[in-house]
Design a protein around this nucleic acid. Sequence first.
DNA 1: GAGTTTGAAACT
DNA 2: CAGTTTCAAACTC
Length: 772
Amino acid sequence: MDTPDRATTTNNLNPPKFEDSPVFNFLNSLSPIKPVKSVHITQTFSSISFSSPPSVFTSPHVNSNKESRFLRRHNLLDTSKPKVTSEDENQTGSAEQALTDSTHAHNNSRELEKNADKGTSIGDASIEPASEQAKFSIELPQTLKYESGSPGYDPILCGDEANTLLSLPSSEAAQDVACSHESSKKNLVEGELHLHGICQTEPKIDGTECDWDNLINNASDMLIFSSPNVSEAFKDLMNKQLDPSGRIMQIVNQVASGSGHENEDHPPKPGLASDTQYTQENIANVALVASNPCEKMDDEHVYVIHRGIRRRCLDFEMASVRRNNSDGNSNASSNATKSDERNTGGDSRRCFLPGIGLHLNALATLKEHRGMKNEKSSSGRQLNIPSSTSSLLPQEHHLLLLPASSERDMELPENEVQPVDDCSQSLSLMAGEEFNQNSPKKKRRKVETAGESESCKRCNCKKSKCLKLYCECFAAGVYCIEPCSCQDCFNKPVHEDTVLQTRKQIESRNPLAFAPKVIRSSDSVSEIADDPNKTPASARHKRGCNCKKSSCLKKYCECYQVFSVSISFVPSISVIIRVKCWFLSKGGVGCSISCRCEGCKNAFGRKDGSAGIDAEAEEETEASEKGEVEKALQKTEIQNIEENQNSALQATPLRLSRPLLPLPFSSKGKPPRSFIATISGSALIASQKLGKPNILRPQVKLEKPHQTVADDEMMDIIQGDSSPIACIKTSSPNGKRISSPNCELGSSPTRRGGRKLILHSIPSFPSLTHHH
DNA sequence: GAGTTTGAAACT
DNA sequence: CAGTTTCAAACTC
C-alpha cells in the first residue's frame, strides 16, 4: 500500500517502531498510561467523523485486542523487511517491555541511540536521562509503516507522506451519523493507525535530531481517524496547511460567503437533503477542515467529515419545518426508531438545523456568516427558535454549522457560558478524549465500552419517558439514541411533537430550564481581565447546588463536576490531558453564594470563596489534614485519569483528535507523564475580552496524575501565543461533552516549525462582558 | 448486577 | 417559597 517513495524510504530507514522510542518508554515509565495497539472501537452511534484515534497508546485498561493488533502491525512491519534480525526482534520485544519498565526504557533508548548512529536502528530516538530532561529530545522514527495492514488504506490518498503523516483508515460508512453498526465494524477493522513516519514532515530531520516540538508537531500528523474518509479529508487539510499561506479562516469566510462550496466539480453527495444542507455542512467542514483557500476543498472529504458531525440534536423547532420539507430523505423519517435514526443519518442531519442547539459561541460565528444565513432562509429553511435561552444546546455543530435562526438567539444572557456538554452533538473536534465517567462498571459504561459513542448522552430513564429534565438527553436537547437504556422513551424523532410540547411546557415553567447552567460572573471576568493570572475559576453554576452530604465533592453536585479533556494528540504518546473546564454547561465550577450547599468543599471553589482547584489549592488540600477532601479529590482525579485513559481509546463520534499543542515541556524540557491541564472557560472568555486570540491552548503541564494545572496557568495557556492547541474533545464525567465551538484548524501565529492545529476554542464567543 | 445514596427536578 | 415526592445519576457493595 505504500507508495514507491515510501517503500524506499522505509527500507532505507529501517523504520523504527514508534513505541520503541526512548521517549515513549520514558513516558510510559512515568505514566500509568501504556501503549496499546490500535483501538478497536465498536462504535455504533458514532458517526462522528473524527472518532477518537484508535490510540496507539492507551491506558492500561485497553483491551488486549488492541495490543495484539498493534503487535500484528509490527509483524507486518517486520515482515516487510528482507530479514528480521534477532536484534530487531529483541528491540521490538524490549520496546514492549519498556512500556512498563522505565529502567529498561533508558537502556533501550541508549541502544536506539547507538543504532541511530549506525543508521540501522529501528528507531532513531534518543532521550536524555531524567536528570537531563531539560534537553529532552527525541528522535522519532523516520518511517513508521503501519498502513500496510489496513484494508481500507488508500495508497493514493496516503501517498503523499511528505505532507501527510496521517494515514487515515477508510471506512466512510463509519462517518455517517447514522451510526451504522456496519460502519462501526468496518471501522474497527480498518480503523488502524497508519503512521507514515513521524518525522517525515520534517524533511530536515536526518535521523539525528528531532526535538520535542517536532514530535509534537508531528504528532498532529499522527492523528488517527476512525473514518478513513475523514482522515483523508483531514489529511488534505493537513497537506494544505503546509502551505504557509494557508489560512483556515479564509476558507471559512469563503464558504460563508457562498463561495466555499462552489466547487461545481463536486456536487453534493447523494443523500444530501438539499443544497442548503450541503452548504451548512460545508461550513461545518470548513470550520473543521480549514484549508488553503487557494485550493478547493475536496467536497467529498468535507462531506465525509461533516457527516460525522451530524448528530441527534433535537431540532425541536424544526420539526414542522422538516415536515414540510419535501425532501424525501428525510429525516422526516422521523418515524424512525433509534436504530432507524442511526441508519438514516437524516436525523443526524438535523444537527445542522438551528433547533434548540444554538450555542452562544455559535451566534457570533453565525453572525459572521449572516450571508449564509440569509441564503438559508431563502432556501426555505428558515428556522424559528421559540426559546432563546432554551435553545442553548451544547452542540457545537449547531453553533458552527447552523445559521442563526433568529435574532433571539442573541438575546441569551450575556454572561452565560454555553454549556458544551454533549459531545454527541458537539463538533467534537476533539481528541480522543474521554471524560470522566467514574464508574466503568455502569451499564452506560458498558454501552460505551461496547463501542457506543461515549460521546453520546446516554440516559437510563425509566419513568420519565425521557421527557423530563431528569433525562440527560432531553435536558441536553438531543434525542435519545440506541445507547440509551431508557424505557418508554418519547425522546425520539418519532415523538418530536411530544418532545417539543414538553419542552415548551418546561420552558414555560422555567424559561431557563434548558439554558446553560454555568454562568460567569462579571466580577470574575473583570477580575481576570485585570489580572490574567488570577484564578479564573469564576464561572459559577447559575443556581448553585444544594448539596448536603456530598460536600460538593461528588458528581451529585452540579457545581462540582470535573470535566476532563483528554487530548490524545500523539497516538504514540498517550497524552492524556485532563482539562477541568469551567466553561462547561455544568460542573467544574466552584460553588458560590447562590449555592445552598452544606459543608462545601468544592475543590473548584468553595461557597465561602475559598480557593478553587488550583494546584495550590490542591496542594493545600494535600497538606492539610483534610484527608477526606484530599481523598475525594484524589480519588476523583484518579478516576478521571483512568477513565480518560480508557475512553481515550473509545472512538467518539466525530472525535477529531488534533494535536495542536506545542507541548510546554518542549521548552521546559519536562517529559510528559500525564498531562493534566485545567482549562477555564472563564479564561477563554477573559482572553477574548482581552482581545487575545481565542486559541484554546491548554498548557500542558507535566505533573503527577493527580495534579492539576493552576488556573493561572490555564490562562497562560489560553492567552499565550505559543501553544496552539488541538481541537480538544472535552467531555464531562457524565458524558457531557464540550468542544470548542469553533474548532478550527489554523496556523498559529507563533507556531514553531511544524504544522499545528489550532483550536480556536471560542472564537465566536460573544463577549460576555462588554456590557458590564 | 443489584442496591443505596444523593440531589436535582417536579410537584404540592 | 418551603416541603415533599419523584427521578435518575452517582456511587457502593
